[in-house]
Nucleic acid binder design. Sequence first.
DNA 1: GCGAGCAGCGTACCT
DNA 2: ACAGGTACGCTGCTCGCG
Length: 789
Amino acid sequence: MSEEKSNKKAIRKAVLLDADYITRKDRAVIRLIMKGKKMFQLYDGNFSPYFYLDGEFPDNFNDARMVGKEKVKKIVLGKEKEVWKIVARHPREVPELREAIKQFGETYEYDIPFAKRYLIDKDLFPFMELKYEREGKKLTRIISKTKKDSSLKDFNTLVFDIETYNPQGIPREKQDPILMIGYEENGSLPQKKKLMTSKKLPLDFIEHYEDEKSMLEGFTQKLKEKDIEILFGYNSSAFDLPYMRARADALKTNFLIGRDSSSFKIQNRGFYTVAKVNGRMHLDVYPIVRFFGIIGALKITSFTLENVYAEMSGKRKMNVEKMKIWELWDQKPEVLAKYCSADVMATSEIIKRFIPTIFALSKTVGLSLFDISSSTSSLLVETLLMREASKENMVSPNRPKGYDPTPIKGAYVKLPEPGVYENMIVFDFRGLYPSIICSHNVDPFTIDCEGEAFVSPLGHRFCKDKMGLVPKVLGKILELRAECKKKLKTLSRNSEEYEKINAMQQALKILANSFYGYLLYVNSRWYSRRCGESITAWGRYYISETAKKAEERGFKVLYIDTDSLFILLGDKKKEEALSFLDSINCELPGNMELEFEGFYPRGVFVSKKAEEKGAKKKYALLGEDGTIKIRGFELVRRDWARIAKDTQKSVLEIILKEGSKEKAVKLVKDVVERLRTGEVPMEELVIYSTLRKKPGNYDILSPELGAAQKAIARGKKIEKGTLIGYVVTKKGKSISEKAELLEFAQDYDSNYYINHQIIPAVMKILSELGYSEEDLKSWGKQQTLDLFS
DNA sequence: GCGAGCAGCGTACCT
DNA sequence: ACAGGTACGCTGCTCGCG
C-alpha cells in the first residue's frame, strides 16, 4: 500500500520528536517532527497563537492583528477570574498586538514561543507515540498518545569531528582546508569507525577522497544515504559545522546537511549558540557537558574534550599539540588520523554517559532533545510548571519587572574548631530544600493565607488546605524518583533497563534540585523572595534543632554546612548515633529525612589563614576504606599550581593515614629543594584562572589578566571566558608582571612557588599537628628557605 | 617618596 | 541567565613618616 500523495484520511502511528512552525500564506502552521520508520514532518494548521488580558477593552477596540477574543475563566495569580483570551493572526504579531492591548490591563502568556504553546496545550511530549489521523501531510486528529520508551539505540546516529590545516595557529576558513572528517555510526562498534581524508594512508579505517571538496560533498551524501537522525559533535555548533560551511562556500559547493537539503541555522540561546539542522537533530555535546558542570553533576574545571574525557573515564586519550596539527598533516598524517579518530571515540564515550539523562529530561519536561541540549535548569523547571499550570487552568505568571537586589539570608554554616579528630559521623538531610518545599506547601500563591498554615520561622504562612502548584509538581518529581530508586534495586547493574532508569533518576534529581534556585532566580515566572527566604529559614531551623538535640544526647557537633552535620562519636558507639538518627526522623514532618552519610575514623579541620578561628568549607576526612574526602583545600582548586596541590595532598595523606609530622616535613623539604634547583617541569607550575569579564573591563590588574595582556600583545586572541594558564616568571615586580602564559614562559620564580604556593598550602595542615605559633611566626619572618636547608 | 596595613576585587569552591 | 556562604590572593589605595 503506497502512502505517498494520498489525500485520503489515514490512521498512522509515529513518535513525536520536536515541533516548530512555518508560515504558509501568512498563516502559521505547526510542523511536527516525527519518526516512524524514518523521520518525517506533519503539519497542523488548526492552531492559533493567543494570550490573555486581565482587564476590559473599550467597546470600539479593533485591530487587524486580533482575529478573535473570548471571555474565559482562569486562575490568575492564585485567584479565579474572568479574563480575555485574545487570538492573534500570526505569532510574530503577538508582541505588537500585546503592545497595543497592554494599556487595558495586565497581559499574560504573551511571550510563550508558538510551538511550545502548542505542545503545552495539547499535552504533547517528545517520545510520545501518537496515533493520529492524517490527510496527506496534514494532521487532522490525534487519536491517542502513549509514552514511548525510546533511547539512543532507536536512532541512526553519527558522531563526527574535523581536523583543519593551521599554519598560522588558528585555522582561517577562507584558505585553510579541512584535512579529515572522522566519524562513527550508531555507537562505538569498532567497524563503524571511519575517517574521510584526501591522503592515502595505510590505515584500515580510511575512506579516501580526491580532494577537500569531494570529501565535504561525501559527508553530506553520507548523512542522506545512512539516513542519519541524530548528528553529534563536540563544539560542532561553534566550530565544525560553521567551518565546513565556510569551506564549502570557498570551494564553490554546497553544505546542505538538512533532510530538506537546507543547511543549518545558528541560534543564540542565552549562554550558547547552537546549530539547528532541519529534519535531523544536531546535538552539540559541549553545551550538554557544560550544563552538567553548571549544575554540579560533573565536577570538572575545564571543558575541553580532552579534560572531560579524562575526568569522566579516568583514561587519557591520545593528544597532540594543537598548534602543530598542520605539521602533523605534512609530516605524519597517520598520527593526525589516529588523533582525529580518538576525538570521535572520546565524544562517543561522553555521549554514552550523558545522553541517556538528556533523553530522560526531554521525556519528563517536554522539551525536545535539541532544546534540552542548550537549556538551563531554570528553563526546565519553568517548562514543567507551565505545563502543569495549563492543566490546572492557571495562567502562567509574568516574569517580575523589578526586584530587590539584596540577597536573602541563606544557609547556616557552623564555625569548626580546627584540629585533628577521630571517629566522626556525618549525617545529612536528603534533599533538604525540596523536602521543605513539599512538606510545608511552599508556593508563591499559597502564602500568607487565612486559616490553618505552616508558619515559617520568618512568620510567612503557607496554607494547609490548598496545595500549591510548585509543591505539587515537585512532589510528583520526588515520587517518580523514589519509584525509580526502588526499581533500580531489583535490577542488575549494566542491564539496559538499569541504565535507562538510572538516567531517569538522575534527570529527576536534577529537576528536584533546581526548584529552590528557580524560586529565587530573578527572571523566573514563579519568582518569590518570600518563598526563598522561608525555605532557607526552615533549613536553618531544622539543622540547628538537630544539632541541639545531638548535643543533648551528649554528642559533640563539630561542623554544620547547610544540610550536613558532623558529630564526634567520642566514647559512644555507632549504634547510639544511629538510634539518635531514628529519633530525629520520627519527629520530622512530611517527606523530610535525615540520612547516615558516613563514618570517618579520622578527619582534619584547619584554621583560617592568619587567624585562630576555624575555616569553614575546608576539611579532609579519612574513610574506613582508606579513601580521603577533601573539601575546599587549595588542592581542589584550579587556581593553585599542581606542585602545591600535589604536595598538600601528600601531606594530608601522611597526616591522616600515618600521623607522621616528620615524614610530611621531609616531603615538603624535598619539593622545596626541587623547586630551588629548577628541576620542576613548567607544567606543574601552571596556575589556571578564568577571565570572567572582557580583558578591557577590569579595575584591577590580576596575574591572569597580566598574562593575558602580554599574550594579546603577542597576537593571541583572548576574550571573556578564556581560561588562562600562567606561570610566574622571574621577570617583573608584581605577580601580574611576572605572570606569563605557559607557552610564553621561559623560566619560573622559585621563590614565588616556595613562599606563595608550597608553604601556605602545607603550613595550614602542619600547624594542626603541633607546630606552635612561634614556629609559624618564625616561618613567616625568617628567610623561609633557611628553614628548609 | 616610600613601605605597611587594609579594603575590596575577583575567582573558585561548598552545599 | 538556578541560590547564598565562604576563603583567600592580589592590587592598589590610604596613611604615617621623613
